[in-house]
């Protein structure tokens, strides 16, 4: 029934010193659709691919606002993400309440990482089945962190998580050195290009299946004012101008045929498996 003797329980080390249950939890993250995060000197952005269970259903929520200066994109179990993001909001509120200070982003990420670690060491609770990309700004400027169910958190220039995120990572590794000085529009375009790599064949990014999260000053493509460069989530028609900036895939690497027709809306979405 089990793949091996040592994988039925959080509280068991394998003879190699590995924790199989934790490794399986990391697999749960890969079941979710992809999310991409990038940062420049002025902005951090998140991009995520939303799934829908069918034509009559709405698209899933991939991004959550935690505080004015912090937001997350998730991959994995949405219900776990809701519990953890609720905890993050409490931490952020408590910092505001006690010190009247927006919580430093690294401390917020560490707080959920430390919470997740307990579930990898003690019996009775499974590890969380969700990974986050966290963006935020504080005294140190814009940041991007990854949180994973193993209880680890890291700060990155750019990162992606979720299904087929390796393809997005490959794109990011190729281009990350240019991100620091990117304009917001260029940063989002890089993000969309990376996110596109995670799509199944014949699928497209469109205004229904894509979310964009931003911290930092307003883009020329945005209509709403954003005091203090607060975190905001863009969806539906508001991401249209960003999608239009994308360069057709073939031509990005090599000379290629004409750009494909404008992304179709509605039924082109990725279907949730099984």
């Amino acid at each position: 029934m089990f793949r091996n003797t040592y994988d039925s329980d959080n509280t068991v080390f394998s003879p190699q010193g590995r924790l199989h249950q934790v490794e399986y939890a990391l697999e749960a993250v890969k079941q979710g659709s992809a999310a991409v995060g990038l940062r420049s000197k002025t902005h951090s952005v998140l991009l995520a691919l939303k799934r829908s269970t069918g034509e009559l259903a709405s698209y899933q929520q991939k991004m959550f606002r935690i505080d004015d200066h912090v937001g997350i994109a998730i991959a994995g179990l949405t219900s776990d993400a809701r519990v953890l993001s609720n905890f993050m909001r409490q931490q952020a509120m408590s910092s505001k309440m006690i010190f009247n200070r927006p919580i430093p982003v690294n401390r917020l990420v560490s707080a959920i990482a430390d919470k997740a670690q307990v579930n990898t060491q003690e019996y009775g609770r499974r590890p969380y089945g969700v990974g986050f990309l966290v963006i935020g700004q504080d005294n140190g400027g814009p940041h991007l962190y990854e949180f994973s169910p193993s209880g680890n958190s890291y700060e990155y220039y750019a990162m992606s998580i979720g299904a087929r995120s390796q393809s997005a990572k490959t794109y990011l590794e190729k281009h990350y050195e240019s991100f620091a000085d990117c304009s917001l529009e260029d940063l989002v375009r890089h993000g969309l290009h990376a996110l596109r790599e995670t799509l199944q064949q014949d699928k497209e990014l469109n205004i229904n299946n894509t979310s964009i999260g931003i911290v930092g000053p307003k883009s020329e493509n945005e209509t709403k004012e954003v005091p203090g460069g607060a975190f905001r989530i863009l969806e539906n028609s508001s991401i249209e101008p960003f999608l239009k900036t994308m360069v057709a895939k073939e031509s990005a690497d090599a000379p290629a045929p004409a750009a494909p027709a404008a992304p179709a809306t509605g039924d082109e979405d990725v279907q949730m498996s099984g």
Partner: peptide
């Protein structure tokens, strides 16, 4: 484990 990591941050 990745060159995308921010040096000195972790």
């Amino acid at each position: 484990h990745s060159k995308l990591l921010v040096p000195e941050a972790n």
